[in-house]
């Protein structure tokens, strides 16, 4: 027999995770994004340990105020003399937490109701999807504004606001992908041997419907971080003196004529974090759905 038929006879067995990782690695941008993201998470964690909240974050060192970037303060100091670099890295965990928890809330609620609608169909589906239609007519930012206005300004409420306002989008995605999977024969087969709806849904349907949800969720983390910064900038999100990046930009606004550098670093931090996550999102999209690969 020829050489090639021998090679074909023994294909290398890889787990799904390995296959995804293999595809992901091919995308240079995604790898750069992943490295940058891990670095940001690392810095955020280190900052929680080395930065003293009371003096360096919420304190006041008036004699050092509004210094330009220098060796001692590489990002300069703000109007209360606090080191901007320390505030930026300490602030990372707010953005990350809000971004991921906000998306988490959204994915959890959205996917759950979307999957229920998609799986059971019928009147229940009609009812749920009309409700989703209703919620989706309210523009996302206004819905979030509404929630913040209703429940008051705090980090928890901001997470809820961002989460609730985007949940309907996930409901739609989840329903669509569950409906696609539901029609497959292995689901029919599971039903035929008497598997319960609950088991079918979590064991057979959800894992196969997950790809588009993961991809959408990754993108959503990025937009959530921008939305959170926007709200904080408007004074409706994380309140000062907490060094959330949007709040820092808001603090810096009165000094934009004289100390423009104060504007640069928190914004750059948002952009780099969001960029890293978007790059990862692109890599995941290509890796999870080869059909979408460009």
């Amino acid at each position: 027999m020829s050489k090639n038929s021998k090679a074909a006879a023994q294909p290398k067995r890889k787990t799904q995770g390995q296959l995804i990782w293999h595809q992901f690695k091919k995308n240079k941008g995604a790898v750069i994004g992943l490295i940058a993201f891990l670095a940001i998470v690392g810095l955020a964690i280190i900052a929680l340990f080395i930065v003293d909240y009371d003096t360096q974050i919420a304190g006041m060192l008036i004699k050092d105020k509004l210094q330009k970037p220098s060796a001692a303060h590489i990002f300069g100091t703000d109007h209360l003399g606090r080191d901007v670099f320390l505030r930026v890295i300490y602030g990372a965990h707010y953005s990350l937490l809000i971004g991921f928890l906000g998306t988490g809330v959204s994915v959890l609620f959205g996917t759950l109701i979307g999957a229920i609608a998609g799986y059971f169909g019928g009147k229940l589906e009609w009812f749920i999807m009309r409700l989703v239609d209703v919620l989706m007519t309210i523009p996302t930012m206004l819905m979030a504004t509404c929630v913040v206005a209703a429940f008051g300004i705090s980090i928890t409420n901001l997470i809820l606001a961002i989460g609730i306002s985007t949940a309907p989008h996930f409901a739609r995605t989840a329903r669509a992908s569950v409906m696609t999977v539901r029609g497959n024969e292995y689901v029919e087969a599971a039903k035929a041997i008497g598997t319960s709806d609950f088991i079918i849904m979590f064991k057979h349907v959800m894992p196969n419907a997950l790809s588009p949800i993961i991809v959408q969720a990754t993108n959503r983390v990025a937009t959530c971080i921008i939305a959170a910064a926007s709200f904080s900038f408007l004074g409706l999100g994380v309140p000062s003196p907490l060094p959330e990046w949007g709040a820092m930009l808001s603090d810096a606004k009165p000094f934009m004529r004289t100390q423009p550098y104060l504007m640069i670093f928190p914004g750059l931090a948002i952009m780099i974090t969001v960029l890293a996550i978007n790059l990862i999102g692109d890599g995941l999209r290509d890796a999870l759905d080869p059909k979408l690969k460009r």
Binding site: F233, K253, M256, R257
Partner: peptide, 25 residues
């Protein structure tokens, strides 16, 4: 593609502030 993903990642209000500093102030 690089420009596009950067554009997607830039918070538009921050871009606004930077452009305001440069072109207005």
């Amino acid at each position: 593609s690089a420009l596009a993903i950067a554009g997607m990642s830039i918070p538009n209000f921050w871009l606004g502030l930077l452009l305001m500093i440069k072109f207005a102030l």
